[in-house]
Design a binder for these strands. Sequence first.
RNA 1: GCGGAAAUAGCUCAGUAGGUAGAGCAUCAGUUUCCCAAACUGAAGGCCGCGGGUUCGAAUCCCGUUUUCCGCUCCA
Length: 492
Amino acid sequence: MSKATDELFKNVISHAKEYGFVFPSSEIYDGLSAVYDYGQNGSELKNNIKTYWWKSMVQMHENIVGIDAAIFMHPTTWKASGHVDGFSDPMIDNKDSKKRYRADQLLEDRIAKYEAEGKTEKAAQLQQEMDDALKAENLPRLKELIIEQEIACPVSGTRNWTDVRQFNLMFSTQMGAVADDADVVYLRPETAQGIFVNYLNVQKSGRMKIPFGIAQIGKAFRNEVIARQFIIRMREFEQMEMQFFVRPGTQKEWFNKWKETRLKWHLALGTAPEKYRYHEHTKLAHYADAAYDIEFEFPFGFKEVEGIHSRTDFDLSQHQKFSGKKMQYFDPELGEDGKPYGNYIPYVIETSIGLDRMFLLTLINAYEEEDLSTEEKQDSRTVLRLHPVLAPVKAAIFPLTKKDGLPEKAREIMDKLKLDFNIQYEEKDAIGKRYRRQDAIGTPFCITVDHQTLEDNTVTIRYRDTMTQERVPADDLEKIIGDKVSWKNVLK
RNA sequence: GCGGAAAUAGCUCAGUAGGUAGAGCAUCAGUUUCCCAAACUGAAGGCCGCGGGUUCGAAUCCCGUUUUCCGCUCCA
């Protein structure tokens, strides 16, 4: 990260706090690591991003519907999805090299070594002991095994180990009033499973026919080993996901279609295309047969914002296995051989975008420190060039001075506009200062009421991006603003 | 989790031979102002991150702790 971009990123973070976009969580108690709150302008912007996504995914596709599943889910869900076994790793650190290892992998390496040396009996015995310890979640026993086997750190060569600790991706809590092991439930680490477990409900109640999609926006929770870089990696975050169910064999074409559709969604906001790129996963997760990320160039480099994954029939098959409920779909359409496609478990294409990352992307992309200096005077302004559909406040209305009936007239105009748009009224400070304050939160229009307004009911409208102004009839404002902030501009 | 750095008003920061805290901007109340920030007057605002120790006395020295930043480590 260069000094200039480093500086820019820091400025965006303090701007976000200063203007009510993002605050550190529980700040009066020194904050809570990697948790953030959205402020008065941040929540407006976030809601607008959600609306844009929801409209373009659900409203614009007649074969996609939206749901809102609970964060708590039956614990078996996470056994089926692979989260319980796959993401609770026993970790151990070497105190000298400061390197961290998975305790089970250190032992696996030793087993492999025994096998290579032909000591199969020793290998089998250790394997058994390790499996027992893992099964019983006996962490001290794992450490004993590492000590007994005299396993040394490959880097430092020492056997100076910390205790074995469990790294759990998922947050757990108790469901009942009385704490009991049987009542442990997890806070979902991804929203996707809420869609998969409702696949049958939605398909039947909505009489959905393959191909169809289920969309959802919601919170998810992950215990990150290390969470940093502002809201890029948070412990509590929000996802906007859509699972698209397709006929087996057609996943590749649907994958390509969604890959393109999703990038278009990003570009429709007017972001420079060179800021985006695709990143192909070469190492695929256990459930995927293809995966692309859409990455955005943040000040600290390209980072994933959205993933498009071909998840095969893994999830539905797993849920069928664990729940005993048939996840099959009967496809009556005739294939090339003139026979119906019949029963199958659908394949799934997932589009999953991090709302908080999208939020940060939007803020960084919009943020500009503009130098307005002339020969006589040094001047600058900070402006958020947000797309008008996303701007938290659509227009601000100012009386030029706070006397002569101008405030009353301004409020009268505002009362009409506020029925359609989020409007702010300000009468304090010099007019220029008020303009600049609105620039800082990305308000696209400022409307000023002056003495002429009292005579002919015209006002000046000042544009954020160009800082130019025009005189227009007050009665035209609804249409002028409405045209610019209409969702049509980005959905078409 | 490890190592390094930092923490003083809402923000940016001053404040060392240890002696009861200061500026600019922002805020609030007025004045002025008919269109692009920093005009005038006044006011308010500070467990100097938190806890302990040394000292007659600590923002300042020592120890611990929390949070943030930078590296490393981990990551679907």
